[in-house]
């Protein structure tokens, strides 16, 4: 059984993407340390609702750390202080009685605020649309065993494919760069034999789309890797840069 703690929350409140935002302060008591962070917010919101106030808007869905819907910057850290964890899997036992928590959305020019903590990550979908797929139509596939894939390559591709598209990497980066996300997506497919035919166009088009969405550049801070709930490696960024360079030269030629 968890113990009960009292917290002060400073939460970013913003009506919509056009409005000015500001911090609001909430004092919350009797928070069970076995609660998840989002359940703590549920409790705060229930209190606000009972007073007919405006509850804090935040995105969430699976609450199992896999859908990538939730996320906030808590005391300066995307998804909070626990490594390798989404906000929904962060439990209140990581906080102490009397703590002040500053809760902000994942900020980036490319992620406009929808309301409060909820942001629009449609830019990620558009990056995928630019080339994050293998162009195979339903029914065209050969037998699954037609192409063996060395376990090592498959595992490496898998490590990249584990990205849940939450956007923490962007929020953590001082430049709001999406390089970790994009490189994970590029690497997943470019490491597999199925991804080879479109290897160059994929990296070229996805990187260009990333740039046009307004994400910043990478300056090797590695904050993204530290914030990533799935602990995606920055090695993917290096791999993407190599592949991009090759693709760009070929494209020039």
């Amino acid at each position: 059984m968890g113990k009960k703690i009292t917290l002060t929350l400073r939460v970013w409140r913003q009506q919509n993407s056009q409005a000015e935002g500001q911090f609001a302060t909430y004092k919350v008591t009797d928070i069970d340390t076995d609660m998840s962070f989002l359940e703590m917010l549920d409790v705060v919101n229930a209190g606000i609702e009972l007073q007919s106030g405006d509850p804090i808007a935040f995105d969430h869905d699976c609450r199992e750390g896999i859908c990538g819907m939730c996320g906030a910057v808590v005391n300066g850290q995307a998804h909070g202080p626990d490594r390798g964890t989404t906000l929904c899997q962060l439990h209140m036992r990581h906080f102490s009685d009397g703590d002040t928590l500053v809760i902000e959305p994942f900020r980036s020019r490319a992620f406009p605020v929808v309301k409060d903590i909820a942001v629009d990550r449609g830019a990620f979908d558009r990056v995928i649309q630019a080339g994050g797929y293998v162009s195979v139509r339903t029914g065209q596939a050969p037998d699954a065993h037609a192409v063996p894939i060395a376990k090592e390559a498959a595992d490496k591709a898998f490590d990249a494919a584990a990205c849940i598209g939450c956007g923490a990497c962007v929020a953590a980066c001082p430049n709001a760069s999406a390089m970790l996300f994009v490189s994970a997506k590029v690497s997943h497919l470019n490491l597999l034999p199925q991804g080879q035919p479109q290897k160059d166009s994929r990296v070229f088009n996805m990187v260009n789309q990333m740039d046009s969405e307004g994400f910043g550049n990478c300056s090797n801070e590695y904050e993204c890797e530290a914030a990533c709930p799935k602990e995606i490696s920055v090695q993917n960024i290096a791999r993407m840069n190599r592949q991009y360079l090759k693709a760009a030269i070929k494209n020039e030629g």
Binding site: Q140, A144, V147, F158, A161, Q194, G195
Partner: peptide
């Protein structure tokens, strides 16, 4: 399974 593998779904391999 064929379709998913062709799409690049990284199923476990031996």
């Amino acid at each position: 399974i064929d379709q998913c593998v062709a799409q690049g779904v990284p199923f476990a391999r031996d």
